[in-house]
Design a protein around this nucleic acid. Structure first.
Lengths: 213, 213
DNA sequence: TTGCAAATGTGAGGATTACTCATATTTCGA
DNA sequence: TCGAAATATGAGTAATCCTCACATTTGCAA
């Protein structure tokens, strides 16, 4: 949990409001700015969001915007922070009083569903945490590639498990592949030792799912 | 595989060279442009890459750059395309003549390692496919959050499996959590029906890994 | 109440940068 | 050899993030 705190401090250092709103009036205005930004991100994505448009929609001047947010990123971060806090509470609550494996299973399952619904429903989260979303076409290309690669897996699996449901097989292969990419991206983002461990665990998980044991 | 073809066509439609280099001279210059872009991305990331800098480093004018690439994205895409093609060949080769489950296991394992090494070694890939890499600080925040969330899982798992190795437990929880996020992101990127299936498969995989069966 | 310092508000303008286009030069086939 | 197509150029345009000098409002101590 230390690392999270460190990151928060880091964030504060880089993107803290240039000036914290202390008066009621300014606090309300900051809220309006965030609401405007949120709406614009939902409509067009954070990349297309224009600072001038945020200011106009919030009914403030561009100068006021920069009075409380040092730069464009800071606005997106501020929004992300809120959802992060929300989801933290949600996770904590869901897992708090789990007693046995069965309880864990249902709690975990529910948790995943909540996350899924949250992502489905909240465009800002989708934008902020969505990787290459900024470039929709690139994201599509990436997905298509991933699907194509998964097909190589499917071909092999159909030979190894001819009795398996093809749809299930495709879904599994696609997911496993995509997770492999996620695992590798994660692995290169942490130190080498942990990265190696992560890749090993991924391999074990994937193989167990694909060919059992 | 249809979708991949479609995406390629799409890409061609959006980002095809404004003019294909037909003469030897221009082909060499385009190579120099791509090499310059690749170097710059490796140094600072594609976001910080400046078109003027690419041109200068390639020893061409800014106009020449735009003669062959309609916009900045197109350069990044062109580079991504190369690695995509490379890795496709690699995957196909690795999985081509797998006969039984054991053969599959070793082939898959090797494939993952190759991917891992490729990502580790090639900065351009890291940049192009790395999601929020553009904003390094945001990526760090995301990682820290993911780690913090994984800690909730660790806490529960330590209760359920008190005899398990703590390091292994943390690694697994971190990976499973990160994969959950990846799964949800994937799920919201495809149609609802497939998304639902993907989430279900993820749950099954995760639970099997975390508490077995 | 009054005065003043701190907080807040403003928007024209500076600075950066992706991208265009009119024009010049080179290539190459007829 | 000639002309059309391909290629090369870089000053200029447009868009956009962000600054800053100055105006206004708020809160509070005298």
């Amino acid at each position: 949990m230390d690392e999270r705190t460190a990151a928060k401090l880091d964030q504060a250092a880089i993107a803290s409001p240039r000036r914290a709103p202390t008066q009621q009036r300014s606090r309300e205005r900051v809220e309006r700015m965030l609401a405007a930004a949120s709406a614009l991100i939902a409509e067009q994505g954070s990349d297309a969001m224009r600072m001038g448009e945020v200011a106009e929609r919030a009914g403030v001047s561009i100068g006021s915007l920069y009075q409380f947010f040092p730069d464009k990123r800071a606005i997106v971060w501020a929004l992300a922070e809120r959802y992060t806090a929300e989801s933290q509470a949600c996770i904590s609550a869901a897992l708090k009083d789990v007693g046995d494996a069965e309880g864990f299973k249902s709690a975990f399952s529910e948790l995943v569903d909540i996350y899924y619904q949250l992502f489905l429903a909240e465009p800002v989260i989708r934008d902020v945490w969505s990787g290459t979303q900024a470039d929709k076409a690139l994201r599509d290309l990436e997905l298509a590639d991933s699907r194509a690669n998964a097909q190589f897996l499917v071909a092999v699996l159909k030979r190894l498990r001819p009795d398996a449901d093809p749809v299930e097989l495709e879904t599994t292969a696609f997911l496993v592949w995509q997770m492999g990419e996620a695992a590798v991206r994660l692995a290169i983002s942490v130190d080498r030792e942990e990265g190696d461990r992560l890749v090993e665990v991924y391999k074990r998980m994937a193989l167990r799912e694909l060919v059992g044991g």
